[in-house]
Simulated assay, not measured.
Amino acid sequence: MDLLVSTGWLESELGASDLRVIDSTLFLPGSGRNARREYEAEHIPGALFMDLDEIVDSDSPLPHMVPPQHKFASRMQSLGLADGQRLVVYDNSPLHSSARAWWMLRLFGAREVAILDGGLAKWKAEGRPLESGNPALRRGHFTARLDRAAVADKAFVAGALEEGGWEIADARPASRFAGEDPEPRPGLRPGHIPGSKCLPQSTLFDADNSWKRGDALGSAFADAGVDLGKPLVATCGSGITAAVLVFGAHLLGKEDVKLYDGSWSEWGADPDTPKATGRA
């Protein structure tokens, strides 16, 4: 499969024995929306629900940290996922959270993983079929192998700032990057990592929720001052929308990208990390 698949392609493939469709919708705290309930009310036929709020490292005080290998394998097996399947992820969230599901599945060794271009919003706008409820699941055999090299931690980011040579792109809205709006989680200082570039994840999409491609996508990075000739670290609030930047970079053929999993939830809470404000 391509990294992105169209709604038409997916509808034509529904029911294929090796295909699994995954709803990975996630919302920010305080949004007033419940992803699981919305999934149960309506989803693409046969789609499974991947709970990104639960598939985390429960021993970490930080939100959405990558879970241990055994936990990820167990959760994917309980969803009926198995080695060798084609996986298509989608969401119905302004966070474009399917990118996080794509990143985690790839991080743990799945290779045939694509995102549905336009997500559930485009699917519904085109009048394609929906169903409700929860499908019956049969446990699968999913082998998880964590690629630790794809994950950046706080020490790595601090080192990258000191040595230079890395681009750091922040996927949060410009007002949060600048420190003008409060963070949705308590206890965090406002602002951003010094030297990072503001690249709100929403700028990587067209008006119909489809991904920008080619020159238009490259221009989104360039307009934010991100030099894709350098290796890239993507960051955000808790590692969710940073995955949008990782996916966008992959669409442009860029592989030397890491995701800072702790993101501002870690950096902004640490009194010893340097912080900057303003839009420059």
Rank of each mutant, 00 (worst) to 15 (best):
K122Q: 14
M50Q: 08
N134Y: 11
P190F: 08
V113S: 07
A249Q: 01
V157W: 04
S132R: 14
M1E: 06
K197D: 08
D59W: 10
H250Y: 11
S74I: 00
K230T: 12
G84A: 10
W211C: 04
D256I: 11
K230V: 13
R139N: 14
G179T: 11
G165W: 05
G164F: 00
H43W: 10
L252S: 11
E112K: 06
V89L: 05
R279K: 10
S58F: 05
M76S: 08
S132H: 15
A216T: 01
E266Y: 00
G109P: 01
S132T: 13
V157F: 02
L107V: 03
A47M: 04
R111F: 08
A169V: 09
S263D: 09
V157A: 07
Q85R: 13
L28G: 05
F156L: 14
P271N: 13
D181H: 14
G30N: 02
D272V: 03
I115D: 01
W102R: 00
A155F: 13
G46D: 12
F108K: 01
R75V: 07
E131S: 13
D18V: 08
D57R: 00
H96G: 06
H141V: 06
T143I: 04
E38P: 08
S12F: 10
Q201M: 08
I168C: 09
T143E: 08
D91E: 05
V226R: 05
D270K: 04
Y260C: 13
D227F: 10
L107E: 02
L130W: 11
A269M: 15
E38D: 08
E38S: 12
S265P: 03
Q69E: 15
W267Q: 06
R148K: 12
A220H: 01
G119A: 07
P29M: 11
H141P: 02
F27S: 06
A82T: 02
H250M: 13
D215Y: 07
H250W: 13
R145H: 12
S202D: 09
D270V: 08
G253H: 12
D223H: 14
E183D: 12
L14H: 10
G262L: 14
M104K: 02
A47P: 05
A160D: 04
G8A: 12
G133T: 03
L161W: 00
G165Q: 05
V246C: 06
R213Q: 05
K122N: 13
D256W: 14
Q69L: 12
I22V: 13
C236S: 04
A114D: 08
T7I: 09
S238M: 02
